[in-house]
Amino acid sequence: MGYGEDDIALVSFQSVSKGYCGECGKRGGYMEVTGFSADVREQIYKVASVNLCSNISGQILTSLVMNPPKVGDESYESYMAEKNKILSSLARRAKMLEDAFNSLEGITCNKAEGALYVFPRLHLPEKAIEAAKALKKAPDAFYVSRLLQATGIVVLPGSGFGQVPGTWHFRCSILPQEEKIPAVVSRLAAFHEAFMAEFRD
Score class of each variant (00 low, 15 high):
178 E>V: 10
95 K>R: 12
192 H>V: 06
129 I>F: 00
13 F>V: 15
59 Q>A: 10
78 S>Y: 09
31 M>H: 08
47 V>F: 10
115 A>T: 15
110 N>T: 14
131 A>F: 03
121 R>F: 03
129 I>N: 02
185 V>W: 01
53 C>G: 08
76 Y>P: 00
170 F>Y: 05
77 E>N: 12
65 V>Y: 14
77 E>S: 13
166 G>T: 12
126 E>Q: 14
101 F>V: 01
13 F>A: 08
102 N>G: 09
147 L>S: 00
105 E>C: 08
69 P>Y: 02
127 K>M: 06
90 L>K: 11
104 L>R: 01
50 V>T: 13
51 N>M: 07
83 K>G: 02
145 S>H: 09
66 M>L: 11
72 G>H: 06
144 V>T: 15
37 S>R: 13
181 I>D: 03
45 Y>S: 07
173 S>I: 06
71 V>E: 14
140 D>I: 04
116 L>T: 00
11 V>I: 15
53 C>S: 13
106 G>A: 01
149 Q>C: 03
65 V>F: 13
173 S>C: 11
3 Y>P: 00
177 Q>K: 13
60 I>E: 14
31 M>T: 12
54 S>Y: 15
67 N>A: 06
147 L>K: 01
132 A>D: 04
112 A>S: 13
62 T>L: 10
127 K>T: 13
112 A>P: 09
184 V>K: 07
105 E>R: 13
171 R>D: 00
31 M>Y: 15
135 L>D: 13
186 S>T: 08
26 K>Q: 10
163 Q>N: 11
128 A>P: 02
111 K>I: 13
36 F>S: 01
177 Q>I: 11
136 K>D: 05
117 Y>P: 00
35 G>C: 04
108 T>D: 08
186 S>W: 02
173 S>Y: 09
162 G>C: 06
151 T>E: 04
9 A>I: 01
165 P>V: 07
136 K>M: 05
36 F>I: 01
159 S>H: 11
47 V>A: 10
67 N>P: 04
167 T>P: 05
200 R>M: 06
34 T>K: 15
24 C>R: 14
159 S>R: 04
